[in-house]
Design a protein around this nucleic acid. Structure first.
Lengths: 138, 138
DNA sequence: CGGTATCCTCCTCGATACTG
DNA sequence: CAGTATCGAGGAGGATACCG
């Protein structure tokens, strides 16, 4: 922000290799991150974290430009991992509520550092990109 | 610097919506995360964070099962974003060194929270998956 | 309303071959 | 050693139509 030193003490200072000790664990962790770091997952996570319980189409509208297929798929995957809970109210017309579990909420908190990093360093990245493009042409 | 960042210092523990205030910023941040949360990017980031300066084939060997194409592409993308620096030593045979920039190092630190989350909650996720599969069958 | 099923289109990614 | 160029398979993801 005002001074340098962006976000050093948000979490553990260095975090050299959290799960790198066990290659099997690392592979699993990597797989988890791969699924969790999905565009739609992140967006849905955000919306649910902000608004609490939401209905299917409500999430679709909030996220904006997501197809029904991707919305269903992403919600299922999140449910499968235990990030969201799905509650069906047996009425007509159907009514299905989605909400973050504790696990989902904690994931949102974990991603906070990355969000802040991206927000803080957005201009730096754009500048780097411009520099790279310029150097590329020469 | 930042266009109208009113120093929102009320980013308390939970980090509800870091950049959600400005949709344009959020879109850019999302794009950044999308690129940064790539499987190979994460792995290369890890290796470079642990070992420091490395050469092209050295990174390839360390990461393990990455094709030359993906290694080149990912390193270029990371360089483009200013995450790594690329130094060519004009000798025969060619010698190219890669190292994390300050930005790259800070990204590694930011991702620390997610790594820890994934490592800590690995078993919980696997349990949730098992539960989901079981419920699916009924 | 909240899905599932089908088709179709990019676009990523790997394998292979070649080069300075 | 450190790439670039080309091809081809496969999966991600959108559009559309239909169902409980």
């Amino acid at each position: 922000m005002s001074t340098g030193a962006p976000s050093e003490s948000l979490f553990a200072p260095t975090c050299d290799h959290p799960a790198a000790e066990d290659p099997a664990v690392e592979a699993l962790v990597r797989a988890i991150i791969g699924q969790v770091a999905d565009k739609w997952t992140l967006l849905i996570l955000e919306e649910l974290a902000e608004r609490g319980t939401m209905r299917f189409t409500e999430i679709g509208r909030a996220v904006g430009d997501i197809s029904q297929k991707m919305l269903t798929k992403t919600l299922r995957d999140m449910e499968r991992m235990g990030l969201v809970s799905r509650t069906v109210h047996p009425v007509v017309p159907p009514h299905v509520d989605y909400a973050l579990t504790d696990l989902g909420t904690s994931l949102g908190a974990a991603f906070c550092g990355v969000w802040l990093w991206a927000a803080e360093n957005r201009e730096r990245i754009e500048a780097a990109r411009a520099t790279f493009e310029a150097r590329e042409k020469r």
